[in-house]
């Protein structure tokens, strides 16, 4: 199995690098912007809240693969533009990630009991202190497992990029298999790669949920 890996290490490495680049960009776009949008929707604006809920509904009813294909072919044909498939993937998955993170944050903010904030006010804490020392730590403890799971799903979704010719790991594996025909070794390597990355993440999430989750009264 490892002979293929050694012989085609450069190709595998490039595929691996593309997958990691995709994931990093999807996370970098989705998480901070999602948190920002979620905070606005959960705390400050009903319009944004409704928008986030509608977009979340949209991402539920349109499968990620269909969205990716729609952005790659019909939309670009309608707009008469050509966007690199790598960036089409970033836009599609970044959008799905952003909406999911925003929805998680927004929902949690709405669940956060007002009584915690009121207790802080009556004890003389400033708004900033209440956010920093009470609301944010509680919120982060509550949302970390869901947001982490979402990022794990994003890594899995990067596989769809192979279908629009992005040379990520799966696409590279297919190409190598077309050259040497050794599916057992090649796809076993893929299994190993995803297991090595995702297993610790899922184990951490399970451990975290068991030890850190905060239940409201």
């Amino acid at each position: 199995m490892f002979n293929v890996l050694i012989d085609y290490r450069h190709l595998f490495f490039e595929g691996f690098l593309t997958t990691i680049k995709l994931l990093v960009l999807i996370v970098v776009i989705g998480v901070p912007l999602g948190i920002l949008l979620g905070v606005i929707g959960g705390r400050y604006s009903d319009v944004v809240s409704r928008l986030v809920s509608s977009l979340k509904f949209l991402t539920k009813v349109i499968p990620v693969l269909v969205l990716l294909f729609w952005l790659h072919y019909p939309l670009q044909a309608i707009l008469k533009v050509v966007i690199d498939p790598f960036w089409t993937t970033i836009i599609a998955l970044g959008f799905v990630n952003l909406v999911s993170v925003a929805f998680i944050i927004q929902s949690e903010l709405k669940l956060l009991p007002v009584a915690y904030r009121e207790a802080g006010i009556t004890l003389g804490m400033s708004k900033g202190q209440i956010v920093r020392y009470i609301e944010l730590p509680i919120l982060m403890k509550r949302v970390l497992p869901s947001i982490s799971l979402n990022q794990a799903s994003m890594l899995e979704y990067t596989l769809f990029a192979s279908l629009i010719s992005v040379p990520e790991l799966f696409r590279v594996a297919q190409s190598i298999n077309a050259m040497v025909y050794d599916p057992v070794s090649i796809y076993s390597l893929l299994v190993l790669f995803f297991a090595i990355i995702l297993a610790p993440l899922h184990l951490f999430i399970s451990w975290y949920k068991k030890n850190n989750i905060i239940e409201y009264d």
């Binding site: 009584a115 915690y116 207790a119």
Partner: peptide, 12 residues
Amino acid sequence: GYVSQEYTLWPH
């Protein structure tokens, strides 16, 4: 000082 009927201890 104010204490309400709700449980307000910070859970974290």
